[in-house]
Design a protein around this nucleic acid. Structure first.
Lengths: 205, 205
DNA sequence: CTTTTTTTGTAGCGCTCATTACAAAATCCT
DNA sequence: AGGATTTTGTAATGAGCGCTACAAAAAAAG
């Protein structure tokens, strides 16, 4: 079934489950961040030695990239679903922010792994990997909004990205999920009033 | 005038200006973060050698603490002024968020040094120093709001902290000051709509 | 069996980090 | 002048980092 499963190869078989190890690594990267998590931490958590680690994952940065991809696939928000073109825009934004609050506040590690990884401190390669993913998410949001509010798409997207980053930071600072939801509710209620209210003539001011 | 200025001490005089060095260190910590800035970077920027560095500032973490303090004094927001009790609350919040947008988006380094430092990755001591300052700022905001909206103080403070963190993150992600101001404008109108809209009973409208 | 291929564990590489011994240099006090 | 005291530059410390050489071990292929 799984397309990536090698059934029979030559040589000594791997003594650990690679997907399982990736899952562990992703959780650790999410919880501790790229810099604070050492290869020694990873190999110890997985239960392997450095050579097995590098044979399987290439490098710490490569594994981080794979972990980011896995995170987005397994735990990422459903942006396209929330902002589907057949739903009112303000309702879609509210759904998206509510999803973010739930997602960032629950689960093993608080906050968004991509958003937090994108402001990486030390390692530039790891940071830019997360930045690229964040930029792509922004592009998806922007495209969904540009279909309905082409004049104010950048502003609305800016506002959504700001709010998601703020929710992620608040989650990291220990604000529990229910309070995050209440914050997200403020951020999204009557957003349409604001959008329609500030510049009703369609001018960019 | 200056109370901390030692005019005449014994021993060989220091060959560099300590306050000037602190200013440089604060700017560098703000721009690059604690982890990504090494002691070697600092001594090179100041133009001194490690022993002079440690004699003057104690340690990297101590210098970071002094830099945080200096940042708050010289570049911090005027929270008490913005949320002064003689002004309408929504107007005060709008002023505060507008200040944050201006502050985070302009100047040498983007974002808030305290907010960004509070989610430090590797060094726990540095992170908790920034966290403590952030908690104190939150307490000031919370106290100013509790005087007017005791029932919803936590929620409103949560929302303001989330927005400031989001603005700081957006600034770090390259959003320019004028767009930050537009985002902050949406955020503050959202809040006043919500405050007036949800519970009009017995409180100021 | 032998050969080939891959993974394994041990042990260590070079590097950067924050920090410090040490002695010479520069200033004040007597 | 002659200590006393503090800063200076040189050089190195131990610890941790990401990463790898190497040879033994385990499987398939001949």
């Amino acid at each position: 079934m799984s397309a990536t499963k090698k059934v029979s190869t030559r040589g000594r078989p791997r003594a650990f489950d690679k997907e399982e190890a990736l899952a562990k690594a992703q959780a650790l990267f999410h919880a501790k961040g790229y810099d604070a998590l050492s290869v020694a931490d990873l190999t110890e958590a997985i239960g392997i030695n450095p050579p097995s680690f590098y044979a399987a994952f290439g490098s710490k940065a490569e594994l981080y990239g794979a972990a980011l991809k896995r995170y987005e696939e397994k735990e990422g928000l459903d942006i396209s679903g929330a902002l589907a073109p057949d739903r009112p825009l303000d309702e879609g934004v509210a759904t998206l922010l509510r999803q973010a609050a739930d997602n960032y506040g629950s689960g093993a590690a608080p906050g968004c792994m991509v958003i937090e990884g994108a402001r990486g401190t030390a390692d530039q390669q790891a940071c830019s990997q997360a930045r690229r993913m964040l930029d792509m998410s922004r592009a998806v949001i922007d495209a969904a909004i540009a279909g309905r509010e082409p004049e104010r798409a950048e502003l609305i997207t800016d506002y959504i990205m700001m709010t998601m980053a703020g929710l992620s930071a608040s989650a990291r600072n220990g604000v529990p999920a229910e309070r995050l939801r209440a914050i997200a509710a403020i951020a999204s209620t009557q957003l349409s009033h604001h959008i329609e209210g500030i510049a009703p003539k369609g001018t960019k001011q």
